[in-house]
Design a protein around this nucleic acid. Structure first.
Length: 751
DNA sequence: ACGTGGCCACTTTTT
DNA sequence: GTGGCCACGT
């Protein structure tokens, strides 16, 4: 072995050199799996003489793919451009662009994002005249997506339907699919599903790719779903040189169809698979790692493993509880600023992780106020913004006029005086004649009762035709600018002059620079930039892909988005029962969901290299009303001698102590930790023993009583549930309807 | 045809 | 607290 492999530890070396046959690498957090993957690729090329052309590496995000390619480049030097390093979705798009005509699609298909899917479903719900109370778009979309993740067609779903909801869902699915086919569109799930279909129906195509990809590597294997599993299985079937890397403890996408069994049963599916464990962690301090180990040990369904590290013990894990989310945010922002001022950490060394995107707001406010550069990953996707979607719809229409959705979106944007009635008439005509929506527009004069609208429609068609002809000559960026000019989109916003319009214009400017950046990147890759490729790239970028490691900013993101990343200092905010673990696990009453939450916590803890701070708030505004929260059970699962609870409120923080009740929460916490020393076997932790002071022993009203609420008025108590620290009271108000509230806050008066 | 105001549901996580 | 949707009025 050449020198570069000597820096690897023995199991890592084994994982690199075991190149033939199926291989499962169980790589604990921070165990250097990316290093193993990149060295393995280098080894294949350099030592085994494998043609880079024959290697396929699948990662979870584009960012990870870029990083991997970069690192392989550094190891191997030239020749690695021809390695396919990409996500499942972009790999499938590449394959489908070449061969989807075998399935009767046009290779020029468009990709529908979640928003587009929603419009399609919504339209169908309306056409089927379904009760939207029962058949919610979201639920239907989830059904369809779930089915596709499991490679089920609408017929399969109809066959398995157990009730009328499922039957209807199958009907909607069938119609949804035919709309997509008509529009020559594929949704995210289709990208995988159709590729599997292509391989299964056309063995010669499969054979081509089996020959092409003799060596396959899959990262984050624990998060693959059935469709992805099948895809990989098909590709690897012939040569069996499949190397998957994953960690069952980091499986956090069950809700999206990820099947942890893909990793737990790898050895059953590939009986002669070699299994290698990477258990040495290079990332975190010993105390952080130990905390992570203790937390995850509470899960039952996992492969037993013991992560260890030779790193320094490091600092204790900091835990702080605050009165509310504002103070939590203020604290975290203050800590970051202080550390930077003192030269201890840069902004980019710090990341704030939380369970739900909604939590980002408070941090954003405080960071903005403090003048600290930051970037929020996730939330509302840049490309989901209205102005961006509008402009992209123009580009999509130019690119593929079969995409009815885009055409309809822009027909009256900006306002052209073409209203719903006209649109409905065109739609009806198109359906009668078997035309696409745009085709119907082009022959609008044939449509009866168009009247005054005809002129306007002709204007629109002319605009699109002109843009289409320009698309031949113009670069992507020029075309986009032409759209902006021809439609007067920005002008209209400027005329508005509001702050909101201002920010929309900024977004549009950003889109223009993104188109420029795309062109440059494509040319750097030696490709000719095309409109289709630009649109495709946009459809497949995740927000995390736009994180720029060279910029010094604080990163804020959900725990999910943080997977695969690492930071010197990690803040885990909102460590509260009901928020994290999230309440929905209780709705399902599902132990597995709780375990998934715990894995998410494990992922969060193991992102931290040097320092980890966990915070929680006693009260938090959730869905409009204030709720009391006790400290997350996950915090309790960390042995107390690993935790630094900070100063007491009385000592150091007079501002807090004046607001808080006489009992210091920190003193309470200490008691709690002291009272209940950590036991590894403890199966039922009592998470709610922090600061019970708010609980009233008795309420002066009971079920059936009439009470008055300051805001909601008079109502009747229908239910009282004893919560951890308070009573949850359900009241049927005369005016405000049924409300659930905490007795401590509601201040209900018996009358 | 289009704008406005009130009502409602919503918040888990995403390629 | 917020954004989306519907109904109504101009």
């Amino acid at each position: 072995m050449s020198k570069i492999y000597e820096s690897l530890n023995p199991p890592q070396q084994e994982a690199v050199s075991c190149t033939e046959g199926p291989l499962l690498i169980l790589a604990g957090a921070g165990s250097g799996k990316t290093r193993v993957l990149t060295h393995r690729i280098a080894y294949l090329i350099e030592e085994k003489g494998v043609d880079p052309w024959n290697i396929l590496a699948i990662t979870f995000t584009n960012k990870a793919a870029d990083e991997m390619r970069e690192r392989v480049d550094r190891l191997v030097g030239n020749g690695c451009e021809s390695i396919w390093v990409s996500t499942f979705h972009s790999a499938c798009v590449r394959i489908l662009r070449r061969h989807i005509d075998f399935l009767g699609y046009d290779n020029h298909f468009v990709i529908y994002d979640t928003d587009d899917q929603k419009s399609v479903v919504k339209d169908i719900v309306k056409r089927f005249d379904l009760d939207t109370r029962v058949y919610k778009e979201k639920a239907l979309m989830a059904r369809i997506s779930q089915a596709k993740d499991r490679l089920l067609t609408a017929d399969d779903l109809a066959k398995d339907a157990r009730d009328s909801f499922e039957e209807t869902a199958a009907r909607v699915y069938r119609e949804y699919q035919s709309v997509l086919v008509r529009n020559n569109a594929l949704d995210f799930d289709d990208l995988i599903f159709r590729t599997v279909e292509l391989f299964e129906k056309h063995p010669q195509v499969l054979d081509y790719y089996q020959e092409r990809f003799k060596y396959i590597l899959v990262d984050e294997y624990q998060d693959t779903n059935l469709a992805q599993f099948r895809l990989i299985g098909l590709l690897a079937e012939k040569y069996q040189n499949l190397c998957v890397v994953g960690d069952d403890d980091q499986s956090i996408y069950r809700f999206r169809g990820a099947d942890i069994r893909n990793i737990l049963q790898f050895e059953n599916v590939f009986p002669d698979a070699v299994v290698i464990r990477l258990e040495q962690n290079y990332r975190s301090t010993a105390q952080i790692l130990e905390a992570a180990n203790f937390v995850i040990a509470n899960n039952e369904g996992r492969k037993e493993k013991r992560l260890w590290t030779a790193n320094e013990p490091g600092e204790k894990i900091r835990f702080r509880q605050f009165l509310n989310g504002f103070e939590e945010a203020e604290y975290i922002v203050g800590e970051i600023e202080k550390a930077r001022r003192e030269g201890e950490f840069r902004y980019k060394d710090c990341a704030v992780l939380y369970r739900t995107n909604a939590q980002s707001r408070l941090f954003e406010e405080k960071l903005l106020y403090a003048g600290i550069p930051y970037k929020i990953v996730g939330g509302i996707n840049f490309y989901a913004r209205k102005e961006i979607k509008d402009l992209l719809a123009y580009l999509k229409t130019v690119d593929n006029a079969r995409d009815d959705l885009s055409v309809r979106r822009i027909l009256n944007v900006p306002r052209r005086g073409i209203g719903d009635t006209t649109q409905a008439r065109i739609q009806a005509y198109a359906e009668d004649m078997g035309y696409s929506f745009y085709e119907a527009l082009r022959v609008a004069e044939e449509i009866p009762s168009m009247g005054r609208s005809l002129k306007k429609i002709e204007g629109f068609v002319n605009l699109i035709q002109t843009l289409k002809s320009k698309a031949e000559l113009f670069s992507v960026r020029e075309l986009l600018e032409e759209v902006i000019k021809a439609t007067g989109y920005v002008e209209e916003l400027q005329a508005e002059g509001t702050e909101e319009a201002e920010s929309r214009i900024e977004n549009i400017d950003e889109l223009v620079s993104k188109s420029q950046a795309y062109m440059e990147a494509a040319e750097a890759r030696g490709e000719t930039p095309t409109l289709s490729a630009f649109l495709e790239e946009i459809a497949l970028v995740a927000d995390i892909d736009t994180v720029d490691n060279t910029q010094d900013y604080v990163l804020l993101m959900t725990l999910h988005s943080a997977k695969g990343l690492e930071f010197p200092w990690v803040f885990m905010a909102g460590m509260e029962e009901d928020l994290f673990p999230n309440v929905s696990y209780q709705r399902g009453g599902d132990e597995e969901e709780l375990e998934e939450e715990r894995r998410l916590c494990y992922v969060g803890i193991t992102r931290a290299m040097k320092r980890l701070t966990m915070t929680s708030a006693r009260q938090r505004m959730l869905r409009g009303d204030i709720q009391m929260h006790s400290v997350s059970r996950f915090v309790h699962e960390i042995p107390r001698d690993l935790v630094d609870l900070g100063y007491t409120v009385e000592d150091k923080n007079p501002k807090l102590s004046s607001v808080l009740p006489s009992q210091s929460p920190y003193a309470k916490m200490r008691e709690a930790f002291r009272a209940k020393p950590y036991q590894k076997t403890a199966s039922a932790p009592s998470p709610r023993n922090f600061g019970d002071s708010g609980k009233k022993d008795e309420l002066d009203y009971t079920v059936g009583d009439t009470v008055r609420h300051a805001k909601f008025g008079v109502g009747k108590v229908t239910e009282i549930v004893k919560g951890g620290r308070d009573y949850e009271v359900t009241v049927e108000f005369d005016r405000a309807g049924r409300r659930k509230m905490f007795a401590g806050f509601a201040k209900l008066q018996k009358i």
